[in-house]
Simulated scan of single mutants.
Amino acid sequence: MQSFSVVAISLVLLSLSAVQANNVSESMDNYILQNQRQYDAKLKLLEDQLANFRTLFAKRIEALNMQADSMQFKLEEAAARLDPITLIDPWSKQCVQNYSVAIPTIASARSSIIKCAENLNGVLNSPESTYNSLNSYYKNNLKNALNQCVKLHPNAHFNYTLCVSKVIGDANKYTVTSQNNFNTYLKSSECTAESRIRTSWQCSFGQVYSITSSVEVAQRLVELCLVNREVCGSVVCSQPSCPNVTNVTLAEINPRKETINNPFTFVTNGMNCLTFRITG
């Protein structure tokens, strides 16, 4: 009877141990799963930050295309204004030909603006490398370490719990360090990208100013040529051509000035004509 009682008690203890072991195993599985979900969420957060960075700065660079479109519209307007003038008469045609050559083509204007765009390749190398290292750590180091805990402590549940806790603790420390490095590198990448974008826009503004000035000066010279046939921009504006040519700048013939420098100082009695060439 006593022997039967001992056996019964042993079976109860074994049963309780098995239940306890199952509870410990299930609890640790949930613990591991919960941390893995947090790691997945961390990776997703870093992925989103990288994607947002690429989208934001790509759009700011692509905005240069809008400047190119705007400049194309301005050049098309100039062409629509000047081209019909060439059909009026030979004089008008010559006036347009003399000065429209200074206006760049649409293709060259667009190219000069779009070429200003700085390349953003390589800007995200450091934060991307940090992200890849963290992702690799979760997939390899963490996974292998947890498997090692199972191999080393298949039946020692307490030791298994300690092993898993240490592995998760190390993973959490690595995660915090990686997150801090990622934030630092991403901030540095933002500064680099901002600098390149600033350079791109400064370049494009310079091109826009240069092209716009060329268009406005050319249109003004054509208008002056049309209004004042005796003040022609080229010796071929009239027939027969006059061999006596003098240059007059726009500043000198500014209608807002009451006086101008005497342009006839070199005239002699033998001259029977005089042509003025207007320069910028």
Rank of each mutant, 00 (worst) to 15 (best):
A156S: 09
K166V: 04
Y185Q: 15
C163R: 12
Y137P: 03
S165Y: 13
A145W: 12
N159A: 05
C163D: 08
G169A: 04
N155A: 03
P154W: 04
K139D: 06
I168T: 04
N180S: 10
S136L: 07
S165E: 13
A156V: 02
C149W: 01
V167Q: 11
H157W: 09
N172W: 00
N155P: 08
T177A: 12
S165A: 12
Q148I: 02
Y160F: 13
Y137D: 01
K139Q: 13
T175L: 12
C149N: 03
H157T: 04
N183W: 04
L162I: 07
A171P: 14
K166F: 01
N159R: 15
N180I: 07
Y185M: 05
K151C: 03
L152E: 05
C163V: 09
C163E: 03
L146M: 06
T175C: 05
K173C: 00
K143I: 00
H153R: 08
D170K: 14
N147S: 12
N172E: 06
Y137E: 02
T177E: 12
T161L: 10
P154R: 10
C163F: 10
Y138T: 02
Y174N: 15
N183R: 15
V176R: 15
C149F: 11
N140E: 11
L152H: 07
T175P: 04
N159M: 14
K173Y: 07
V167E: 09
N147P: 11
D170L: 06
V164K: 14
K139P: 04
V176S: 12
F158M: 06
N172H: 05
T161V: 09
T177H: 11
N155C: 01
N147T: 05
L162D: 08
K139A: 08
L142D: 00
T184F: 10
V164Y: 05
L152D: 12
V167I: 05
Y160T: 05
C163G: 07
N181R: 15
V167M: 04
L146N: 08
Q179P: 03
A156Y: 12
V150I: 11
C163P: 13
C149A: 01
P154L: 01
D170N: 10
H153I: 01
K139W: 00
C149V: 02
N144P: 09
N172T: 10
K166I: 03
V164Q: 10
Y174Q: 14
C149P: 06
A156F: 10
N181D: 03
Q179Y: 04
N155K: 15
D170H: 03
N144D: 10
Y138G: 00
H157D: 06
V150Q: 13
Y138R: 03
H153M: 08
T177W: 03
L146V: 01
L152W: 01
T161A: 13
A145N: 15
S178M: 12
Q179M: 10
Y174G: 00
F182T: 07
Q148W: 09
L146H: 04
A145C: 06
A145S: 13
N172G: 00
N172F: 01
T177S: 13
I168H: 08
H157L: 12
A156I: 01
G169S: 11
T175R: 15
V164P: 14
V176T: 12
Y137M: 03
F158Y: 14
T175I: 10
D170S: 04
Y138S: 00
Q148V: 02
T161S: 14
